[in-house]
Amino acid sequence: MKKDSNKKTSFKKQRLKYEEYFFRGVMLLSSCLIAFILGLIIYSILVKGVPSLSWEMITQTPKGGFYFGKEGGILNAIIGSIYLAFGATFIAFIIGLPISLYMNVWLSHKEKWVNMLRFILDLLWGIPSIVYGAFGFTIMILLGIKASLLAGIIVTALLILPIMIRAIDEGLKTVPKGLKESSYSLGSTKSELAFKIMLRQCIPGIVTAVLLSFGRAIGDAAAVLFTTGFTDNIPTALNQPTATLPLAIFFQLSSPIPEVKERAYAAAVILTSIILIISVLSRVLTQKYNKHTIKF
């Protein structure tokens, strides 16, 4: 009886062992696949885009006949995208920072409210950007505003606001209670705690939040599809329409002319590079600022 059960045990063990080997293989394969796909994406964009990348592309605006494959570049879209992303990130920061401070200082003992706000933010983050774009466009028509840089900035700012707040919030959450309490016991008011202490403690979190939002703002196409318009000129005022990189890629790619298509691939290289630079930057900066934060 005892022997029999031992046999059974070892048989079961054997089977489990092979099963584990099998699944460990599958798991390793899955992780490798994910890394491989990233490599593949970057590789195929580079291979297609780099040959048609030229100095002219990034230093000139489209000239006559650009959309039939004649000369010119996409400087208008690059500058437009940078304006748009800076503007949107700035607005989202101005609105988002106080809200996240409010959640973590004034509402810090009303957990129910904070959780509800976080819930709403997560929901807002889940709303597809095309809905923001379409809704924004409707409002613009209603108010008689034309497609412009400003309209694009506002819609994009709304789009990235939840990311901005949640990312700063994640940083503020980690400020230890003891620090808050000692600040109060030294007689500081809530505003002083928020703007003088919490803010300084969370610089790495804020930097990450800003870069994350910037990356999202510069890459989004659906929200600006109707709201910024599209033009060959570099905008000189907020009420002018503007081109953006994602839309430049999107429109040029749907052209039947091969030269125009190739420019789209080159533009994709530029956009990808910007995103990669932001990603590296955020890693470097977080590490650098982390050194100056008091750890507990």
Binding site: L38, I41, K48, G215, G219, A221, L253, L271, T272, S279
Partner: peptide, 28 residues
Amino acid sequence: YVLRFMQPVIDILAGIPSVIYGVWGIIA
């Protein structure tokens, strides 16, 4: 070491704009 390698991979994949995925889709 694997984690240190995979974390940025996941972050970058999450950060790539939609339109780039579209371009990749068309190319590959």
